[in-house]
Design a protein around this nucleic acid. Structure first.
Length: 115
RNA sequence: CCAGACGGCCGGGCGGUCGCGGGGGCUUCGGCUCUCGAGGAAAGUCCGGGCUCCACGGUGAAAAGGUGACGGGUAACACCCGCCGGGGGCGACCCCAGGGAUAGCGCCACAGAAAGCAAACCACCUCCGGCUUGCCGGCGGAAAGGGUGAAAGGGUGGGGUAAGAGCCCACCGCGGACGCAGCGAUGCGGACGGCAUGGCAAGCCCCGCCUGGAGCAAGACCGAAUAGGGAUCACGCGCCUUGGAGCAAUCCAGGGCGGGGCUCACCGCCCCAGUGGUCCGGGUAGGUCGCGAGAACCGUCCAGCAAUGGGCGGUCCAGAGGAAUGAUCGCCGCCGCCUUCGGGCGUGGCACAGAACCCGGCUUACAGGCCGUCUGGUCGU
RNA sequence: GGUCCCUUCGUCUAUCGGUUAGGACGCUAGAUUUUCAUUCUAGAAAGGGGAGUUCGAUUCUCCCAGGGACUG
């Protein structure tokens, strides 16, 4: 499952909306959405979202930083080329122990990978 | 030592390992390396400025909004300092939108006789009349007592009187010519007046002063692809109309321009509609700038009670754009619990909270801690 | 990021600084009806929080909190 596909950040709102309409997996403190772009490129793109519901700017920024770090560690191992991933922070993202957060992300990525 | 008042400051530290944003250097273009990288409130967006665009002949006025003792500070302020007045506290000290109520209008519920202009409900008193001999009625006097209220037209005491009343007197309060001190707000004294002038302007309003509008998503530059606009050239053409020649078919010259449908015309609406080239302008996505060497910070000296200002020396200190500080490990500090006093444990134990053009303020949030000055007690000398 | 607006019974909404804070829908109880619906009667139920002005504040002023709208 390992590959060396380049990873880019997702920045456009339409891309987020498309990913939200695709498959998603909720695991503990995180929701992961994944969409196959079907354009033939091996590029993997990833975006992060934290809404106002989970707290103020400090909480939202910290949640996105932890998710970004988790994605940096796990996406090269469990990501599928040609997909867009969106990580959505939930209320417990900032308080989850680091090992448990990694488990959540890993489990969600494996669930979303086609067999 | 206890309790308290005010002012200032910190707000975890050190070191590894992976990572992130900006800048510099090297590069065999894979990368390597050096360096910098959130706050006192970055927050709320409540004020004041810089900056940019728009509007505008100058000034003034009006409208609307803001502001309000006095003196100073400042680029400016509603901020700050000093001082005055009022209120609170034993005190250190704290709080106050703190101009004008004889410029005018308005309001003062309930209660009460009466709520703003001097009036009189009960009660008081002289006189007159009546009789049932202490009551009733009446002309007057007077405003001290009762009761209502947030507030009732000076207060207390004495004299005085039929009863009373600044009617008179003393003290207090009030107004106050004038004098003294002060830059001033104001303070002190006060002849005299003889009680007159209730409150609300964060009700309208009057007076003085201030303000053009918008905001970096301001604004400037570059600028695809696609669609569309304008100019021009070539091709492709016909149709309508005017004039002339001619018996006529037709020819020549000029002008204008698409076609279809809604029964015709005008108008209106709807549908469909040329090809290619060159040039121009607007402008979207996107990119670049605006964007950090300044009302800057540190040290020191001088002026000033202070806010603050000035001189000298030194430093360069974040610049993103779905938005950079995170993850993890060790030691120490603080806190809580347990303890066999060695120590151990703690789901993240350690606050409030994350720059987005930049400054000066205000306000609000904040675990824990440090320093200084002062006040009131208590103990000792 | 910027510019604005609004908070009153469970919900929607009235109020010249002085009331017991009014109305509608909903809720509860009773009556009418064989029962239900309808109708009638009665009742409970509210000023986002904190200061200030005032004799007195839902109303006026200030500061917070919460909610909402517009803007590429």
């Amino acid at each position: 499952m390992t590959d060396n596909s380049p990873i880019e950040r997702l920045k456009k709102r339409p891309d987020f909306l498309l990913a939200a309409a695709a498959a998603h997996a909720a695991r503990g403190a995180v929701v992961v959405q994944a969409r196959d772009r079907e354009d033939g490129a091996a590029l993997v793109r990833v975006g992060f979202t934290a809404t106002r519901r989970i707290g103020g700017a400090v909480v939202r920024n910290r949640a996105k930083r932890r998710l970004r770090e988790a994605a940096r560690v796990l996406l090269p191992l469990h990501g599928r080329p040609g997909h867009d991933y969106v990580f959505v922070a939930r209320a417990g993202t900032t308080m989850r122990p680091w090992a448990r957060l990694l488990d959540d992300v890993k489990s969600a990525l494996i669930r979303l990978a086609p067999t």
